[in-house]
Nucleic acid binder design. Sequence first.
DNA 1: CTCAATACGATATAAAAATATCGATATAAA
DNA 2: TTTATATCGATATTTTTATATCGTATTGAG
Lengths: 223, 223
Amino acid sequence: MEAKPRPDALPLPTIRRYPVYLRAVRARRARGEANVSSAALAAELGLDPVLVRKDLAMSGVAGKPRVGHSSAALEAALEAALGWDNVSDAALVGAGSLGRALLGYRGFREQGLSIAVAFDGDPALDGLEIRGVRVRPMKDLVRLVRRLSLRLGILTVPEEAAQACADLLVAAGVRGIWNFAPVQLDVPPGVVVQNMDLAQSLAVLSHSLETAAIPSPARARRP
Amino acid sequence: MEAKPRPDALPLPTIRRYPVYLRAVRARRARGEANVSSAALAAELGLDPVLVRKDLAMSGVAGKPRVGHSSAALEAALEAALGWDNVSDAALVGAGSLGRALLGYRGFREQGLSIAVAFDGDPALDGLEIRGVRVRPMKDLVRLVRRLSLRLGILTVPEEAAQACADLLVAAGVRGIWNFAPVQLDVPPGVVVQNMDLAQSLAVLSHSLETAAIPSPARARRP
DNA sequence: CTCAATACGATATAAAAATATCGATATAAA
DNA sequence: TTTATATCGATATTTTTATATCGTATTGAG
């Protein structure tokens, strides 16, 4: 129970880099490149070649010396590792400006994500269709999410409402919450929360600006 | 007041946690708590108490046993470390749905950020005022940004346009770019780029969901 | 006034991640 | 063929980050 048998033990930083690799691989494949070398990827992305090689090796696809990795195999393996190989439907809670921006983002399809339904507490929005997605009142949330068997919730409500909405999503049976509100959500075990905090990202940037010309840890410039 | 011999050698993860601490401290101070203990913060945020104590210690404010840290001093120190103590003006490039969402986000003020002007390539938007911010055509970017001495650019354009817009911002003299486009920007040394990549965040979430009920590395369950 | 409990500070250990190094192998050029 | 070289794969080292432990100071209760 407390043992970790072996649940795809990919390091977290590696997972975070996978979407970046995936985009680059897709672009190269679209350009007709049948093979991709870790060195070329590293150069393109400004990363250490050894790091890229190790990350790619963990995806399970082997590379051939002097050739690289099969770009088709790589793409499939990265998608599988991320769980992006089959589209999963999500519920969006909060149809404010941020919620609408997400509804309008086409890139989600390439990331195995599709927003099936949206909810908002504002009665004025009830029934409205935004980018092909219908907005429903909050009182229908639990019932609808459960009926559609949605496993993922996207939370784009003001921070005061965040915890209450999270509770509803949990009650409806979602297993993951993508949280855009700057709040630490309290959820039962088994439910995964991933925070998307603008402030955290901005913090790194403004601190870097403050401390003048330090060699930025996020980006290395080298010849 | 002078308790800061070493201005800036903060670890990156610490910086990322600072906004979280800052929010909690502000909330407690608003509730009238003159002092905050690291243990209480740790409990509230689900973090290890030792970690919080170390992070706070690095801000330079000392705490007193049995009492905690002065919440006013903490707030000031955290803001200073983040460079959020004085508001800096930014230019937003790309007044699409995401750009508008950011324009409408009031929280930026508390994070020392104010959007002074927006730019968009769509002539239809020229002259429009969104949330009190005027939208200007791209051709005016370099001139206007330079005249306003803006040091920060926020990039919310489609990925095809991202690099070109970044080049304009650099030409206009910005020192930092907050990049919402899923592209690795190429900028000269001295310019800091902070990527805000939805895909990277989503990756962690969907991978966690895939690998079922592993003890999530991102969140610890507290009592 | 004494004592116990709380919370800080410092040091030590462990875990995780990034980086460096070396050898092996397949391809392309000579 | 032979040889040079790009590239993978594995191991080792260093660096960074997180956790654990201990000591000490301050407060509040008895």
